[in-house]
Nucleic acid binder design. Sequence first.
DNA 1: CCTACCGATCGGTAGG
DNA 2: CCTACCGATCGGTAGG
Lengths: 191, 191
Amino acid sequence: MLTESNISRKEQIERQATALFKRKGFSATSMRDLANVLGIEAASIYSHIRSKEEILQKICFRMAKEFFEAINGVEEESPTKQLEQAIIAHINVITNNTGASAVFFYEWRHLSEPSLSEFLEMRCEYEKRFITIIEEGIRSREFAATDKKFAALTLLSSLNWVHHWYMPTGKMSSLEVGQRLAEMLINGLKK
Amino acid sequence: MLTESNISRKEQIERQATALFKRKGFSATSMRDLANVLGIEAASIYSHIRSKEEILQKICFRMAKEFFEAINGVEEESPTKQLEQAIIAHINVITNNTGASAVFFYEWRHLSEPSLSEFLEMRCEYEKRFITIIEEGIRSREFAATDKKFAALTLLSSLNWVHHWYMPTGKMSSLEVGQRLAEMLINGLKK
DNA sequence: CCTACCGATCGGTAGG
DNA sequence: CCTACCGATCGGTAGG
């Protein structure tokens, strides 16, 4: 049974850091802030982690992995169905990790090299998955001819806003959010 | 003739600060960074401004004003035409202020009270303009029945990504970007 | 616009 | 996990 009391201190540090990084930003979060939330002294944190940036790295790379695993689960079907699945999968990662995905989207820039380059390469690779689906949809004439990169990044941009408001206790399930977004982006607002 | 040499030092400070806030974030930008870019000492900046946060306030509230002026220019027409105009107007503000709009979108949270509340109220008011247009479109049956707030915020989220890549020297004009986004969001990806 | 400087806070280490 | 502490840097002021 996984309860609050038996998760490791290291995991507690990462969870609380995630919440603080989302709320205040990486730079504006001090190790004293983090220690305060954990109820220990700032210096004690360093028994469990090497540096502040190490926490950021862990969060960013774990999320990258989650996004890849999600999109790798998309089955070979028509581009429209694939895109719908990819959107739902992407939203599922966000809704299951609203804090960590916020950090993933906005705080990655505080990574230093070589992590920064590695991160950006992964993100680019992930974006390509969406670009490819749209490309195939244009080729099969399911999607209107358009700039595939422009379309893919616009689409992702609208998906990535979900972490701002989604609450697991809210009235919409993760799947419903994904389905609505897929509907809106594929069919447009017009009737 | 407006050249680099005759704009006021105060304006130079705000412009360079905008660029730094966009690139590094407000918290990670120090007054020494800013002074370094300006070629003066950090202490000298305070002859022209009161505090670091004052610069942030100026940027955020100036942009809010620009967005409102833009959307106030939207003429009374069909909801579809209104939305198209509103999108183009919104994109025009972003493309004319890629730095300041990035600060407006991401750095506002470092404002302190009462500026913070005032800012959020303005932003909420602005979002309502889009919600209202969509509401009218649903009522007139031009748009599919959907959650109007969900639709409006998803739409804005995709528009607000443009500042990341737009360059005035690029191949697409601001108007073209706005038109493409309006087309994609109103008609969807599907053919 | 500069020099000189302030108290506060930063990320992090030593040693137990 | 704590106490004690490090050098560096922070936003900002005084006085010229």
